[in-house]
């Protein structure tokens, strides 16, 4: 009888143990970042980060199955060697050779990013991939059809089940997996980071560049992520009818505002601006020093003493560029765990 009791007791404990608790993380796989980074903005919540989930997201990121004719993957326009920007093209090509109307942004440190797209129209990383998947000139697909294709793909069915459990694939799982991959793209091993961690020292010019940068650029390109994630009108000449944030809010005071991009890996991600109009960092700095065009909602950081632009000498510009080159993260762009 005693033995029976023990057996029942064990059975009872087993039920109790499994019924309430969710599976614990299978490993210590997680989002790692230096102590001078702020807390990530994205909270994984129901989207439990696992190695399998990350790897599924990676497979999807590199798979043209997400496009209508299986020609375009996320990686087509977001290439690791370019810090996940496009291959230094001004605009990107989608299905049928169709061309987009903005420059593909780089992708890293996205767990810290509260808004997405140049115009800030997307309010959450999980729904970010919905835009390129369904955009007519990018992947041209419907979400419904992507899910149908994944459901017919034995490899994916098995992988989704191992990550999300035995239930039919839904877009939420697709978005969760892609989000796991995207948020793990942390760029934190540039020379600047090694300098911050006391592992290397800066040259005189790099050090000077950092100080000038802090004085002239850091009010928008705030350390350590090198953006404050705001949307601003940075005084570009109006070319075309891209109203940026104004297209989202329909408020005139938001016209021609675009998201402040991070300057990490900036040397790799030319051309610059939302429309890729500048090919070099020299051109960008020339714009900020003497190319600013007046707009009613021009960012006030671009006016000093009643004059348009940020005053910078040629020597100062050269030193800023020397500093910006320390933001290139070679570990990140060659890290095999981010590769196909």
């Amino acid at each position: 009888m005693i033995r029976h009791k023990i057996r029942f007791l064990l059975f009872f404990l087993l039920i109790w143990g499994t019924s309430c608790q969710k599976d614990q993380d299978k490993s210590d796989f997680g989002l790692a970042y230096p102590d001078y980074f702020p807390e990530p903005y994205y909270k994984f919540g129901k989207n439990t980060l696992t190695k399998e989930g990350f790897e599924l997201g990676r497979a999807l990121f590199f798979d043209p199955i997400l496009s209508i004719d299986s020609t375009i993957s996320c990686a087509s326009c977001h290439s690791q060697g370019h810090a996940f920007a496009d291959h230094n093209t001004r605009m990107s090509f989608g299905i049928d050779g169709k061309m987009g109307d903005r420059n593909s942004p780089a992708m890293f440190n996205l767990a810290w990013q509260p808004i997405f797209m140049w115009d800030g129209g997307i309010n959450h990383i999980e729904v970010m991939p919905f835009a390129p998947i369904t955009n007519d000139v990018e992947m041209g697909e419907t979400l419904e059809n992507v899910i149908e294709k994944l459901k017919k793909h034995p490899k994916y069915v098995q992988r989704f089940q191992s990550v999300f459990g035995e239930k039919p694939i839904e877009s939420q799982q697709l978005f969760y997996a892609l989000t796991q991959y995207m948020t793990m793209l942390v760029s934190d091993d540039s020379k600047y980071d090694q300098y911050r961690q006391g592992k290397v020292s800066f040259t005189k010019d790099e050090e000077d560049g950092l100080q000038i940068f802090k004085a002239k650029c850091a009010s928008c390109h705030t350390e350590p992520l090198f953006t404050d994630f705001s949307l601003r009108n940075n005084g570009l000449e109006i070319l075309g009818d891209d109203f940026g944030f104004g297209r989202i809010t329909l408020h005139e005071e938001d016209n021609y505002k675009f998201k402040v991009p991070s300057l990490r890996n900036i040397a790799l991600t030319y051309p610059y601006m939302h429309d890729g109009r500048f090919r070099t960092l020299e051109q960008v700095l020339d714009h900020y020093s003497q190319g600013i065009v007046s707009h009613p909602n021009l960012d006030k950081n671009l006016i000093s003493n009643g004059k348009l632009g940020i005053p910078m000498s040629d020597v100062e510009k050269q030193k800023i560029i020397t500093f910006l080159q320390t933001l290139t993260d070679y570990t990140f762009i060659s890290n095999p765990i981010f590769s196909e």
């Binding site: 129209g121 999980e126 729904v127 998947i133 419904e144 899910i147 839904e170 877009s171």
Partner: peptide, 24 residues
């Protein structure tokens, strides 16, 4: 629900009732 990321069931964006480019 308009600002909480990927939803499921009747709120699944695959239902065609979610804007991709201007979340909501």
């Amino acid at each position: 629900r308009n600002t909480s990321g990927a939803q499921s069931g009747v709120l699944d964006p695959a239902k065609g009732m979610f804007w991709s480019w201007n979340s909501g």
